[in-house]
């Protein structure tokens, strides 16, 4: 397996609270990897580390062989041109049209002439089936269209790695399935390494080649999707079968807690 990302002994603490507890794993190149886990398991924190928005307490993150935790801000700003991100709320700039949102990274980070930028924008919007909406503002689009516009912008600089934070959140099942198909198309046509943070099981089964599952800041599974489906790990099974957590308090403990003792 050719590796796009290698994480080694990654530790993140907020004060005394350990969010990621020395985790290590690899992400294969040219595949779609889903980072899976329940709410509060540390998956969004992990994504923020992979895209360089957070610095870990300790540990190493190699992307295409380069340790991003050791880079200066200038080095990382150059490096991140090959990384695209679709944020959970799409993070489009509301004062700009969709075309200008897509053009923004091209205007900021390249020396391309405006006619070239305009053509690239139209190509990217066509890729996400938004050809007729280039002059629309984000407020004039549906939730699913905003996500697709966010993908077009994330694709503007032809990234080698594409990160998605909860792409299906807030979308109806049909729109979410359309977005999943687009993710598959991007992987197949452009051979991009895709990393998706989600807890939506239908999406996971549709798009994932490889899965990293987190629980309480630890990796409890890392492997191909078929191995995840066959896993006997109790926490994996509980997640896949949508079983609620067992009550952690005894009635006596609960009484002591609410009584304030």
């Amino acid at each position: 397996m050719e590796k796009a990302i290698e994480v080694t002994d990654l530790v993140t603490q907020y004060g005394d609270r350990v969010i990621l507890n020395g985790i290590s794993f690899s992400i294969p190149k040219g595949k779609t990897t889903v980072i899976l886990g329940g709410s509060g398991c540390g998956k969004s924190t992990l994504l923020n580390h992979l895209i360089g928005l957070l610095k870990p307490t300790s540990g190493e993150i190699l992307i295409n062989g380069h340790d991003i935790t050791a880079m200066t801000e200038d080095e990382f700003n150059e490096f991140r041109k090959k990384m695209g991100v679709l944020f959970q709320g799409s993070a489009l700039l509301n004062s700009m049209t969709i075309a200008d949102n897509v053009a923004l990274p091209l205007r900021e980070h390249t020396k391309l002439e405006e006619p070239t930028i305009q053509i690239i924008c139209r190509m990217k919007l066509d890729l996400v089936s938004l050809s007729k909406f280039e002059h629309f503002y984000p407020s004039q689009l549906s939730g699913g269209m905003k996500k697709r516009a966010g993908i077009a912008r994330a694709m503007a600089l032809d990234p080698e790695l594409l990160f998605f934070d909860e792409p299906s959140a807030g979308l109806d099942p049909v729109t979410a399935a359309g977005l999943d198909e687009l993710i598959i198309k991007l992987r197949d046509v452009f051979k991009i390494t895709i990393v998706v943070v989600t807890h939506e099981l239908p999406s996971v089964f549709m798009i994932a080649d490889y899965v990293i599952m987190l629980d309480l800041g630890e990796v409890i599974f890392a492997g191909p999707i078929d191995e995840l489906k066959a896993s006997a790990h109790p926490k994996v099974r509980r997640f896949l079968e949508r079983q609620a957590e067992q009550e952690t308090y005894s009635p006596e403990d609960y009484f002591r807690f609410i009584a304030g003792n």
Binding site: M123, K124, D158
Partner: peptide
């Protein structure tokens, strides 16, 4: 060739 190359030829 990336998108900028294709866009250049389209132009």
């Amino acid at each position: 060739i990336d998108s900028s190359g294709i866009a250049t030829f389209v132009e």
